[in-house]
């Protein structure tokens, strides 16, 4: 019939498959950048609105599946543990470990890292360095996560003096600047 209708239906099916099955499955596959790349090849065909919608919904239903919840919690703890040890001397080794964690649980790992960066400026340089091991899918998710943090309500963007940027925003901006250099 109508090719436009067919495309619309195809898009809905692809989005369904990604949201209900492919993205959650990624969380249960031990770090495998090839799977992430394959998912990206599919996702990159979708407009950013559709991708961001999927990212926003991702992990929302995890509570219904104990295995996903466990994978997420483990990824969060592992990320914090590695971030604590991240320093100039072990950058290469730990940077790869961060990327490995992100391959399986990009949303959890990147959210955790961006959250930490807002509080600890010292982390920016080592994290930016570690991020050179991220895949295209993970970079796309990272952009989403940063926008999500910016859009998050309930915190001031300016300090009490009304002139200077809040520390979290200053850190986030500095992080993004370093990353895009």
């Amino acid at each position: 019939g109508n090719p436009h209708l067919h495309l619309k239906e195809a898009r809905l099916r692809v989005e369904d498959a990604l949201g209900a099955c492919l993205l959650p499955s990624l969380q249960l596959v031990p770090a495998n950048p090839a799977v992430g790349q394959e998912i990206w090849e599919l996702m990159s065909l979708l407009p950013y609105e559709a991708r961001y919608h999927l990212y926003g919904e991702w992990e929302k239903d995890d509570d219904r599946y104990p295995m996903l919840l466990a994978a997420r919690q483990t990824a969060k703890l592992d990320t914090r543990r590695i971030l604590k040890r991240l320093a100039k001397e072990n950058l290469k080794q730990l940077g790869r470990m961060v990327a490995k964690l992100a391959h399986a649980n990009p949303m959890t790992v990147l959210r955790t890292i961006v959250h930490q960066i807002e509080a600890y400026r010292d982390m920016i340089t080592p994290v930016v360095d570690a991020f050179k091991y991220l895949t295209q899918l993970e970079y796309d998710i990272l952009e989403y996560v940063v926008i999500e943090r910016l859009a998050l309500g309930g915190r001031d963007k300016l300090k009490d003096d009304g002139l200077n940027l809040s520390d979290w925003l200053q850190s986030l901006a500095s992080f993004w600047g370093h990353l895009k250099q």
Binding site: V14, S25, L42
Partner: peptide, 21 residues
């Protein structure tokens, strides 16, 4: 299997895109 599913879906979506263009 995951990779295969992704590839099949990609082909399916691309063919739908082609029909429109």
């Amino acid at each position: 299997l995951l990779q295969k599913v992704c590839r099949v879906l990609r082909g399916y979506y691309l063919s739908a895109l082609e029909l429109v263009s």
